[in-house]
Amino acid sequence: MATSPQTSLRSPLGRVRGLGSAKEGTHHWWAQRVTAVALIPITAWIVYSLLSLAGGDYIDYLGWVRNPVNSTLIILLVAVGFHHAQLGLQVVIEDYVSGHALRVVSVLAVKLLCAALAALCIVSVLIVAFGG
């Protein structure tokens, strides 16, 4: 690595701004924090909802999901939750899986699986929310 200012082709300003490849060096870190903050109020809401649903039957569930505020918050929980999980699992894989090919395949598998499951959850919520 060319870290000495004398040998580097990058300007001092470019270096101090810390913009990595494609200028997204801090994107992963920042996205993990943004989703973390978003999950704090969402967690409070889902715990409250689960407690009020506990002991209820299917009709109670339908009524809960069909409330537009609830269906919106479930979808947000799913989207933000899976995104946060996927970002975290990526870091764990990058730390502990040593082979390059296996690491890339594992990270991709986690990302695709999270995206697929999130889509499945959201479609399921919409079916109930709009269902007759």
């Binding site: 999980a85 399921s124 079916i127 269902g131």
Partner: peptide, 12 residues
């Protein structure tokens, strides 16, 4: 999250 998925899918 797999449990959450099961719950929501079962509901649908």
């Amino acid at each position: 999250l797999l449990l959450l998925t099961w719950w929501l899918v079962a509901g649908a």
